[in-house]
Amino acid sequence: MEVLAAELNNQAGFTAANYSAAARYASGAGEHEKAIAWADQAINAPFFGQKNWATMSTKGAVLTAAGKTEEAQAVMDEAIELPGATTFAIHGYGRQLIGAGKPDRALEVFKYNHKKNDGAWPTNYGLARGYSAVGNYKQALKYMELAKANVPAGDTVNPPIIDQNIEKLKNGEDIN
């Protein structure tokens, strides 16, 4: 941690990306207060701080790891509205919420992503995952079938997985 702190204090260290990386490292090492401070610097430091998806999602992650879930949710609510929050980034955040045992919140995020991105791929898949996570397999099946109909041309990976998930949903099984 001392070496990392020293590296952040030299000219090459003064970047939002470096402070975000340091925050994630510190969080993984259990240094939660230092992680939060570095995440804040990645966002707000004069000259190099940047408020974008990468820095805000880092702050959300370190706050979550520190047990500050309400603060983390507020940060992530703001992060998903930023211009750099891509369809896939928001989708990934929704999947993280499912993995964290927060299916209702995940469904809200998937609904937001679908609305924000006009139903673009993979937002229907996300809604299928969200509805499945809350046990609404009928709605999940509806959106999984829409996802199948909108698979990008040339995608050979997702169609067989989608077909498997359609069968699971028809059998009343969760796809997450």
Rank of each mutant, 00 (worst) to 15 (best):
F47C: 08
D40H: 07
L107S: 03
G126H: 01
A42K: 00
N113F: 11
T86D: 08
L107M: 13
G30Q: 05
G67H: 03
I90D: 02
A26W: 04
P122C: 08
P83L: 12
P103V: 13
A79Q: 04
A66R: 06
Y25V: 10
F48H: 00
Y125L: 13
I36V: 07
A37R: 01
A61V: 08
Y112E: 06
P46G: 01
M56E: 04
A21E: 14
A26C: 09
K116T: 00
E71T: 01
G49W: 00
E78S: 11
M76Y: 03
A85K: 00
R24V: 08
K102A: 15
E78D: 13
Y93G: 02
E33T: 08
V134N: 12
K116L: 09
P122H: 10
F110I: 08
H114N: 13
H32K: 09
N124T: 09
T58D: 03
E31K: 14
V75F: 01
I36T: 04
Q11E: 13
D118H: 11
R95A: 15
E81C: 10
K68P: 00
D40V: 02
A79N: 08
Q96R: 15
Q41Y: 11
A39H: 03
T64R: 06
T58L: 00
A61N: 06
A39L: 02
A17R: 07
H32R: 09
G13F: 07
I43D: 00
E71A: 08
E70K: 14
K34Y: 07
A74R: 08
R95W: 15
A79L: 05
E70T: 11
W53L: 00
G126C: 05
N124P: 06
G94I: 10
A61R: 09
G92W: 13
